[in-house]
């Protein structure tokens, strides 16, 4: 039933499977799902021992928000690898050609600067987004928020800029490479330096934990914002170009 699974691009409604096979797949999934549901509902949830452990150790984590404590201290290895996942996709989507602007900063293209409403709205929206992003980053230590949320808001500001078609981003400039890799690089550097002090990789000294987490989060926010914005602009600008010529169109 998986045999083909080759994606098609033409017909949005067609199915690769004949009707009989679809009914078969549907019934197998329904039966499996029902069995799973039954097994789950008949088994009790484990007592929240881990949650108790988190709240006991929260005071030594450097932050007050338990989710941030888990993400950036208790299970920081996962978060480090998660930033690596984002970086992989950013690298994969980079254009080849080097005949590009040497700057990361958006370069202006005055010809399409016609939409007055959009541009004046952006004058308010962009500073506000930066403010909200900064707030989310800071508040992550105490309440819901944090690096990913802040990065997503900042990236959204960049997307709004890109949508005006007045700005272009030079993603293969050296500056862009530093921006997208800063999050992972600083995370690892923090882990190694604190490891030299405490003897264990990623173990933060309790007194400096809050500062170190903030440093890691700022770097992660910048990189996440840059990567998400890059993913968007590469997809939006790619249109119909092969990987060998796509560098010229971005």
């Amino acid at each position: 039933m998986f045999r083909e699974m080759s994606p098609s691009f033409t017909d949005t409604h067609a199915s690769t499977l004949p009707r009989v096979a679809r009914v078969l797949v549907a019934s197998v999934i329904t039966a499996g799902g029902a069995a799973l549901l039954l097994a789950t509902l008949r088994t009790d949830k484990a007592p929240p021992e881990l949650a108790v452990l988190v709240s006991e150790q929260l005071a030594t984590s450097g932050v007050e928000n338990p989710v941030t404590a888990v993400l950036l201290n208790f299970r920081s290895y996962d978060t480090l690898l998660e930033i690596a996942v984002l970086l992989i996709v950013a690298i994969a989507m980079q254009p080849h050609a080097s005949s590009q602007p040497r700057i990361v900063a958006p370069s202006t293209n005055n010809e399409s600067a016609t939409n007055l409403v959009l541009t004046s709205l952006l004058r308010w929206l962009i500073p506000l987004s930066v403010l909200v992003g900064g707030y989310l980053l800071w508040t992550g230590a105490y309440a819901p928020g944090g690096a990913f949320q802040a990065g997503a808001v900042l990236a959204a500001a960049g997307v709004a800029l890109a949508l005006t078609e007045r700005y272009q981003f030079g993603w293969q400039s050296a500056g862009a490479q530093w921006l997208i890799s800063a999050g992972l690089a600083i995370f690892i550097a923090t882990g190694i330096v604190s490891g030299m002090v405490t003897g264990t990789f990623l173990q933060y000294p309790v007194t400096y934990a809050a500062t170190l987490i903030l440093v890691v989060e700022i770097a992660a926010t910048v990189s996440i914002a840059a990567i998400l914005l890059q993913l968007f602009t590469r997809l939006a600008r790619a249109d119909v170009t092969s990987p060998h010529t796509s560098g010229a169109s971005s």
Partner: peptide
């Protein structure tokens, strides 16, 4: 009480899902 560990797992999972979706879309465009 609320267990924060699954919340952290969901946040990580969302980021990974974004990355995977973007790569697939990119390949489709290519």
């Amino acid at each position: 009480l609320i267990d924060p560990v699954p919340h952290a797992m969901v946040l990580t999972g969302i980021v990974v899902a974004v990355a995977g979706t973007a790569l697939c879309l990119w390949l489709a465009v290519v």
